[in-house]
């Protein structure tokens, strides 16, 4: 679903958390995590535009990318308000460098083949949906409002990626081999979605968001049942979890994404069209 061009919310509802100075640093960080994961994954998915193996998949992935960029506008827009230093969603998206990005590492991994792209989407969607569902009950009315809008799209994303995992996993020998390989390749990155740090604890304590570790059981149940239907083996606990994205320690891939995504605003500051 397409978004209004600005993504700005007219007549925002009253929300005391937005102007809570004590909470602001953690709230801002957390909003950047929400916005950046959606932005970076949205950009990755958009890379398939014009290249997907079937026209129908091409359009479906472009829709997903647009949904995620729409979420980004809302999360980073609110982040800018909370930060209160005059930065809007565009400034945050286009004018921060890799060290200031707060996305999950999973979201910045290269697309690989369709197996990797679909599996990455599924692993993300299962957590995204569980998280947004909880956020619709946030004590922050602005967060609840954004989540209520986003969860409808995330629900469809999860349905679509689950169906594709099942069809490709329980498909041909070739597609099953690729899906199992994708799962193994991405598995070390899933734990980062459920690790809580001081930022998460602060927003959880305020009642704004759930503790990420509380989402794991629901995520595991979704993943276990879909993988079983897809005839794919669920890996055991990852021996070593790749983490650090949400505090700005990224893989080498993020810089290339930003170079492409931010080029225009860097080369022609303030350019509009």
């Amino acid at each position: 679903m397409e978004k209004a061009a600005t993504g700005a919310i007219l007549n925002p509802v009253e929300d005391r958390f937005v102007s809570d100075d004590a909470l602001a640093p953690a709230f801002f960080e957390w909003l950047c995590r929400m916005g950046d994961s959606a932005l970076v994954l949205g950009h990755r998915v958009s890379e398939w535009c014009g290249h997907a193996p079937a026209l129908e998949e091409d359009i479906a992935m472009a829709n997903t990318a647009l949904d995620l960029i729409g979420h980004t506008q809302m999360w980073l827009g609110l982040a800018g308000e909370v930060e209160d230093k005059g930065r809007d969603a565009d400034a945050l998206a286009y004018l921060r460098d890799a060290l200031q990005f707060r996305n999950l590492l999973l979201c910045e991994l290269p697309n690989g083949d369709m197996g990797v792209t679909i599996m990455r989407q599924f692993l993300f969607d299962a957590r995204h949906y569980a998280l947004l569902m909880r956020l619709t009950g946030s004590v922050s009315p602005r967060v609840a409002e954004i989540a209520a809008k986003a969860v409808k799209e995330a629900s469809y994303h999860l349905e679509r990626s689950s169906d594709l995992v099942v069809r490709l996993g329980d498909g041909t020998d070739e597609s099953q081999r690729r899906m199992q390989a994708a799962l193994g390749q991405l598995w070390p990155y899933v734990d980062e979605m459920f690790v809580a740090d001081a930022v998460d604890e602060a927003v959880a304590k305020a009642g704004i968001a759930p503790d990420p570790s509380d989402l794991k059981a629901e995520w595991e149940e979704t993943v276990r049942s879909v993988l079983a239907e897809a005839m794919l083996d669920m890996p055991g606990p990852a021996g070593f979890a790749q983490t650090g994205g949400v505090i700005g320690r990224h893989t080498e891939h993020l810089g290339y994404i930003l170079a492409e995504m931010q080029f225009l605003q860097r080369a022609y500051p303030g350019a509009r069209w």
Partner: peptide, 10 residues
């Protein structure tokens, strides 16, 4: 799903 994505975007 495809019909939703291709024909009901608006």
């Amino acid at each position: 799903h495809h019909a939703r994505d291709v024909y009901t975007r608006r």
